[in-house]
Simulated scan of single mutants.
Amino acid sequence: MAEPPINHKSAQPGTKPVKRRSPGHEDGPVTRAAVLAAALEIVDRDGVEALSMRRLAEAVGRDPMVIYRHVPNKAAVLDGVAEVVLAQLSVDTTDSDWRAQLRSVARDFRRLALAHPRAVPLLVTRPLATPLGLRSQAVLRPLEDILVLLTRAGFSGAEALHVYRALFGFLFGHVLNELQEIVENPDETDDLLRLGLYRLPVGEFPLLRELAPVLAAYDGAAELERGLDILLTGLAANSPESGAFQQR
């Protein structure tokens, strides 16, 4: 197939190149959703530290003052980024199998964390830094839906809240652990050297050194399932259906 002809008019010497905005950033009114989507793009690409109000304005293609109409400061932007990601987490409150649904939610949360690894610190810390009543509805929706799911299964409100806290406490720790860098020397073939565990005295850390091959073969998906097996088995053993749930 012949190459299309070159448009010489658009390449004339002395002409200024057309400034192209990021995909989806068209002329017209700027919305809060568009601002937060651009913020998430920056975080995904360059990390939280790279996000600034000026850079966000450039990404949207507007004067910074336009951005401030939608998000008053950087803290609000960071909260909004967490909101955008968590809004994608869905809970089926009608599922009759609460354990299967919580497992599905956990898998979905991990998927979102892996899709936005540089936003994970925001997912874990930003909601906790804001009083419940001041958090956005998107951030609170998973909590409300899980409470609905569990109370329909027979848990009291307090019991359901306990389960929610146990589940997300586990999930936060899991995704942070999975995403952290554990390999010191990737080119090494010996697991002790790859992980830097050779520095540990054999007499003081024999088991940790012995587990080097297991640590090096870390499988995030498998670890999530093992953790959920332990967590959900314990919760089921103390659920209303077992008649043994005790609030401590």
Rank of each mutant, 00 (worst) to 15 (best):
P206T: 15
T130W: 00
I182G: 01
A158D: 07
R126E: 15
G157P: 03
R209Q: 08
R194M: 09
H162D: 15
F168M: 10
Q180F: 03
E178K: 06
L195A: 06
L149V: 04
L134I: 00
G157S: 14
L179F: 05
L167P: 05
L215G: 02
P201C: 03
L134D: 10
V183T: 01
V214S: 09
F172A: 14
V175M: 00
F168W: 06
A158E: 08
G154P: 06
R126Y: 12
L161T: 10
G173I: 08
E184T: 13
L140H: 03
L215S: 05
V148M: 14
L171V: 12
G196Y: 03
P142Y: 05
A138C: 01
Q137L: 01
V163W: 12
R126M: 14
P186S: 01
A160P: 12
L171E: 06
R194E: 02
F170L: 12
E188R: 04
V124N: 01
A160Q: 13
R126K: 07
F205C: 00
A129H: 11
P201D: 04
R141Y: 06
R199M: 02
Y198R: 03
T151L: 12
A129F: 07
A212H: 09
E188Y: 00
H162S: 13
S156T: 15
R141N: 11
V202W: 04
L179P: 05
I146Q: 14
E188W: 00
P131R: 02
F170Q: 09
V148N: 11
R199A: 10
H162V: 14
A217V: 01
L207P: 05
P201F: 03
S156Y: 13
L161H: 14
G154D: 09
F172G: 13
L211N: 07
A129K: 07
L143K: 06
E144M: 09
N177F: 08
R141S: 14
G154N: 05
L132P: 02
G133F: 04
E188M: 00
A160W: 14
G157R: 11
G157N: 04
T189Q: 07
I146C: 15
E178I: 00
A138Y: 02
G133M: 11
L147F: 07
L192F: 02
A212G: 01
A212Y: 03
D190Y: 00
P201H: 00
R135C: 07
A217P: 02
Y164R: 09
D190M: 01
E188G: 03
L192A: 05
G203D: 13
E159H: 15
L200K: 01
P201N: 04
L132G: 12
A129Y: 09
P206K: 12
V124W: 07
L167G: 08
E204S: 12
G154I: 06
P206S: 14
R141T: 04
I146V: 15
L149S: 12
